[in-house]
């Protein structure tokens, strides 16, 4: 009974049925993966502002932190708004990879207080 109700609810765009795995993978993308990518983006932005653009480090860190919630909310919306789950994960993996590499390089070059 509950199962049929759940299936009726998750009839997706264009009448397509959205499976359980589809929803589960979007939830993983929207919460833990999102937090990881947002954290990397926040850290990268803080490094970029402080070391690349010579902004006062406290200012750089706070700017990045304030923006982080907007970034998180936007990615969460995309996690459910994007039609294709594989494209969603591709986006997350690529941006996570690029940001992670940039942060690693930046920390490797030193200048960490």
């Amino acid at each position: 009974m509950a199962k049929s109700a759940a299936n009726a609810r998750t009839t997706g765009p264009a009448g397509r049925r959205i499976g359980r795995w589809n929803v589960a993978s979007r939830i993983v993308a929207a919460v833990p993966a999102n937090y990881l990518v947002t954290s990397l983006a926040t850290a990268c932005l803080a490094r970029l502002l402080a070391h690349g653009l010579a902004v006062n480090p406290a200012e750089a860190s706070v700017t990045a932190t304030l923006l982080s919630f907007a970034i998180f909310a936007t990615i969460a919306l995309f996690a459910f708004g994007l039609r294709s789950v594989s494209r969603l994960w591709l986006w997350l993996a690529v941006s996570g990879g690029v940001l992670g590499a940039a942060l690693w390089l930046s920390l490797g070059m030193g200048g960490r207080l």
Binding site: T38, S39, L40, T42, A43, C44, L45, A46, R47, A50, P57, A58, A60, S61, V62, T63, A64, T65, S68, F69, L103, R112, L113
Partner: peptide, 9 residues
């Protein structure tokens, strides 16, 4: 979101 500060301090 402590990572913005952790990146610089």
């Amino acid at each position: 979101m402590p990572w913005g500060i952790a990146a610089n301090y």
